[in-house]
């Protein structure tokens, strides 16, 4: 059983770890994955803020008119 699991692990790793992006993501104990997750969260949060900002600007313009 153990033999198989190691084989499976090796297979799955070789199946996914191909592109240069994968190489980065799997290095340094996969810390880059955490960094990427935080960057995604913050980017979306910032994008939402931009949308909110634009909506308020639109409302302000409507109010002035």
């Amino acid at each position: 059983m153990r033999k198989y699991s190691i084989l499976l692990l090796a297979l799955s790793l070789s199946a996914v770890a191909q592109s240069p992006v994968d190489e980065v993501m799997y290095s340094s104990g996969k810390i880059y994955v955490v960094v990427a997750v935080l960057v995604i969260i913050f980017t979306l949060l910032a994008a939402y803020l931009v949308r909110l900002d634009k909506k308020i600007t639109a409302l302000e313009k409507k109010n002035e008119a």
Partner: peptide, 24 residues
């Protein structure tokens, strides 16, 4: 969005802080 350059800076600096905070 009268002057928005500093909002871009805000996002850039915080993103730099997140990446640098982990990796530097």
């Amino acid at each position: 969005m009268r002057t928005y350059w500093w909002k871009i800076l805000a996002v850039l600096f915080v993103t730099y802080g997140i990446i640098g905070g982990f990796l530097m």
